[in-house]
């Protein structure tokens, strides 16, 4: 497994080739990226940040009802976008249970969110595609259970056309029936909970921490990260500043490299 350390030494030939492939893929346009604020993550992502005008997929380890963790990480990806771009954030779901008070508690402005309630996966995907045509939006997030490959490809193309970034939050209300097809998203993340960070008092929950597995990323190798939600800075950001010690007890999900930055 390639680690960040191995990659860093200058490989000008490889970088040039990557840039050229990127230009071919995106038709002369270099894809815009937005740093997530966590050095270890940003260094792994091609271009140094999350690609804008692309589709990103987030799923929890238990893709059922109990998905606060996946929703939290999805918002952590959306937050830097919300800070950097104007325009409302469209959040499309079957169950309208995302809570304004919770968003405010995380330092996000709930007034930026426009909530859409759709009746099923088909309507969620349709509404996402409709939203992705509207360049006035900051981002489009959809909570989807099953995803057909064509639907994912349509979203990716719509996002590329308008430059609006799309997030698919996988949320199933029943166990999956089909084997998951290979994704078409630019990045695909799987999020697992971790015991929270230190708190002023021992028994209190601290800052949320997650183990995030970058399972697929166009133009970069997959990896495994431990991240913390940094709400002390007034907003939320991904902080990879974790010591290895206390987390060594946690078994890593895959064989991915563990990042510390």
């Amino acid at each position: 497994m390639v680690t960040l350390g191995d990659e860093k030494p200058a490989k000008p030939g490889l970088d040039a080739l990557r840039a050229r492939i990127g230009r071919l893929e995106h038709g002369q346009r270099t894809p815009r990226v937005l740093p997530l604020g966590a050095p270890a993550l940003d260094a792994r992502l091609p271009g140094g940040g999350l690609a804008l005008g692309a589709l990103h997929e987030v799923e929890g380890v238990r893709a059922e009802w109990d998905d606060g963790v996946a929703a939290g990480f999805c918002l952590a990806l959306v937050a830097p976008l919300a800070a950097a771009l104007d325009g409302p954030l469209l959040w499309i779901a079957r169950r309208p249970d995302l809570y304004g008070g919770g968003l405010a508690a995380l330092g996000l402005d709930p007034a930026r969110f426009v909530f859409v309630r759709a009746d099923g996966d088909r309507d969620v995907l349709w509404a996402m595609e409709e939203g992705l045509r509207c360049a006035a939006l900051g981002a489009v997030v959809g909570e989807v259970g099953e995803l057909a490959p064509t639907a994912g490809r349509r979203l990716q193309l719509a996002a590329e056309a308008s430059g609006v970034t799309a997030f698919l939050l996988r949320r199933r209300f029943a166990p999956a029936r089909l084997a998951e097809p290979p994704g078409v998203a630019s990045t695909r993340w799987r999020v697992a909970p971790l015991p929270s960070g230190p708190a002023p008092l021992e028994d209190l929950p601290g800052r949320p921490r997650w183990r995030v597995e970058l399972r697929r990323c166009r133009g970069a190798a997959p990896g495994d990260f431990l991240v913390e939600w940094d709400d002390a800075s007034g907003g939320i950001a991904l902080a990879a500043a974790l010591r290895d010690g206390p987390l060594a007890a946690q078994p890593a999900a895959g064989g991915g490299a563990r990042m510390a930055g």
Binding site: Y99, G102, A104, G107
Partner: peptide
């Protein structure tokens, strides 16, 4: 919005 109190991300 009022802040400073724990409020969940998803409220049933």
């Amino acid at each position: 919005w009022r802040r400073g109190r724990p409020r969940p991300l998803r409220l049933f």
